[in-house]
């Protein structure tokens, strides 16, 4: 099975295999280009020798022979280099945790914790909303109380006003006044009876 080296890709920003492939293709291209350069230089030099019996075809065969040999060794050596680099350099050991993943070490049972926290938070939010409603209701009652208190105080003031009127017109104590008036009217009735009797 192929190790995708995803964790290494997270750190480096590229997969190590991609990096090695890029390097391999580049090296291979340089080898081919340089060989072509060698061949073209030789061809140019051969043009300078009119007695030269080497054909371009023969030269090409020599180039192919040398290139084949070089390519074989190149592939073997590159394969070893790739192995070493992937194991020792472009590799994150199994016991190593990258700094950005430290949180996973702190919260290993995060799935259960996440769910429990979500539930708790939901409950707290509901509680807060309820308290906010309760606060509004309490403040509304305070306003209502102001109105009711004002009305009740008005009634007491009305009683005060009534008593002030009575006092203004000379009657601060109705009980005493009525007792006095009742006694006086009884006296007057008695005097009238007396006068009527004496006149008869």
């Amino acid at each position: 099975s192929v190790n995708p080296m995803a964790y290494e890709a997270q750190f480096f920003g590229f997969t190590p295999q991609t990096c090695m492939l890029r390097v391999y293709i580049a090296f291979q291209d340089y080898l081919f280009e340089t060989m072509l350069l060698v061949e073209s230089v030789m061809l140019k030099k051969m043009d300078g020798f009119p007695d030269c019996k080497i054909s371009p075809f023969e030269l090409r065969k020599s180039t192919e022979k040398f290139l084949l040999f070089m390519k074989e060794h190149f592939d073997k050596l590159f394969s070893k280099m790739e192995e070493v680099l992937l194991q020792l350099v472009l590799n994150i050991p199994k016991n190593v945790l990258l700094p950005e993943d430290k949180v996973h070490e702190q919260y290993p049972d995060s799935k259960e914790q996440f769910q429990a926290l979500q539930d708790e938070i939901h409950q707290l939010q509901e509680q807060y909303r309820a308290e906010a409603s309760a606060g509004q209701a309490l403040r509304a009652e305070l306003e209502e109380q102001k109105v009711v208190q004002a009305e009740l105080e008005k009634i007491l003031q009305w009683f005060d006003g009534l008593e002030n009127i009575c006092r203004k017109y000379g009657t601060s104590n109705f009980k005493e006044s009525f007792t006095f008036l009742t006694q006086n009217s009884k006296k007057l009735q008695d005097m009238l009876k007396d006068v009527e009797k004496k006149s008869k």
Binding site: R129, A130, E131, S133, A134, L138, Q145, V148, E151
Partner: peptide, 26 residues
């Protein structure tokens, strides 16, 4: 209502009928 589960549930649930109080003054 939701606020009956709150910290002042007792106060809220014992709210007097202020309209009745005012009506009684008649």
């Amino acid at each position: 209502p939701a606020y009956l589960q709150t910290s002042q549930a007792q106060v809220l649930s014992s709210k007097p009928d202020y309209q009745k109080i005012l009506d009684e003054q008649g």
